[in-house]
Design a protein around this nucleic acid. Structure first.
Lengths: 242, 242
DNA sequence: CTCCACTGGGTATGATGTACGCAGAAAGCG
DNA sequence: CGCTTTCTGCGTACATCATACCCAGTGGAG
């Protein structure tokens, strides 16, 4: 029973020394699972379906991955690998953090199902670790480590929150099987009821007066991000003089 | 087939006019489900278990709630009702937003399973709507509605992100069935391997040098929150003079 | 008083993650 | 080179889940 000792998917060696060559690999399985989740929704990425995708039997996957939860962990970490910050830090911290934020959001939109994967914190897979190094490396020379942590909490909170909202709406629409317009038309009566009740003046103000909801998603994100970066700037010691 | 017309759990009337008195109610079912999820984890709150909790047969629940997803929506909105901001705004926006943030975080910690419920955005249940009114009412008189939206995105992002991190760790420990100390001891080898690899200097700096991870969770949250509130302050027009 | 739209709930179904066991393959050892 | 050991892929089996369907009984509307 060697299983008991490994607390973590990252501690478990992929291949033992003896025996026949494995026909597949963790990476292959992980990528197949991501492909299915992207194309058909995370609920379609069942163990059987993933196995079929790579031409294996259902139970074969368990030779590579101890459980579905661990596969999920592999999937989540693989996604972090899609964030490319090779040339960071460039010296322009604002551009660096914006690049990070934009890439992160784009990744969320490519893989909306990541919102349902909440085992985020204790993962610390290799790609996530690399990303921490790169992102926190941007401000590392400018502020103490505690300050850096606090600022990154704000930035990550904003990016993830914004991405989560976008993705929640998109997933709701996808799951309904309707077009975006049809979905909005279908929900219109409820919206109307809220507005007509007169009990939600601020909600009404948002729906009627705000420019924000009428901007493109990209612009909405960018506006909020600018605010966050301004906030970070005020926390930096002696910002660059003109 | 009246089912087809209701797009939303909030549009569907709880009780029809005719027929015998229902023995239970949506509120009763929702509260039972929350009680189970709190005590035994969200995975224990199955339809059968919830039905058993209130002394009903499994299928009886479907007389009150069209599907498990809708029940989840009811549960999530019920939680928003736990945030009490009756006396807000008090005139001290900073105190008001801090009260909101603290209550929100406390609610997350009471009900960690909310992290797994991601159908957040298009819900707009009654409690969520009321909360939007109260929270956004704090700054409504001070800033334009678009500004208010942007600032709330930052605040909510921080609060939710911080709560999500705390909850993810707590849930991971709970699910392992170990004590916090035993869980940490179990994970120690992996942490050690990361540090010893020498490839993650900033991660190492966080683990070794930062004060932050050694503060209480409450203090960590408060520190970050102060930063966010500072950020909001700089965005307000002519902050109150001394 | 009669009718029928309701009620609670038993049974059944299809899907899921995964435990178990088996036949065959290949690496280590003599 | 043959034997043993340790692996491989994978078919079968099972517990558990949400939920479709059905039925007998009930109580408000006419």
């Amino acid at each position: 029973m060697p299983d008991t000792e490994y607390t973590n998917i990252w501690m478990r060696p992929e291949r033992p020394a003896r025996g026949p060559r494995p026909a597949y690999s963790r990476a292959q399985i992980t990528e197949a699972a991501i492909r299915i989740a992207d194309a058909e929704g995370v609920e379609a990425a069942t163990m059987r379906r993933i196995a079929a995708e790579i031409g294996a039997g259902a139970m074969s996957l368990y030779r590579y991955v101890p459980s579905r939860d661990d596969l999920t962990e592999l999937m989540a970490d693989h996604l972090m690998g899609e964030i490319g910050l090779e040339d960071v830090p460039t010296g322009d911290w604002r551009a660096d953090l914006r690049l990070y934020a934009d890439q992160m959001r784009a990744m969320w939109l490519r893989h909306p199902w990541i919102a349902t994967v909440n085992r985020s914190l204790p993962g610390y897979g290799p790609h996530q670790l690399r990303l921490i190094e790169q992102v926190m490396g941007v401000l590392d020379a400018l502020v103490p480590i505690d300050e850096n942590l606090a600022l990154m909490a704000i930035l990550n909170g904003y990016v993830e929150g914004a991405a989560r909202d976008e993705v929640a709406a998109a997933e709701e629409i996808r799951r309904s099987g309707l077009s975006e317009e049809a979905w909005e038309a279908r929900n219109y009566p409820y919206l109307q009821r809220i507005l007509e009740s007169g009990r939600y003046p601020i909600f009404t103000k948002i729906a009627m007066d705000a420019r924000q909801p009428r901007l493109s998603r990209d612009d909405q994100f960018r506006h909020g991000l600018d605010r966050v970066l301004d906030c970070i700037e005020t926390a930096l010691p002696q910002p660059a003089e003109d």
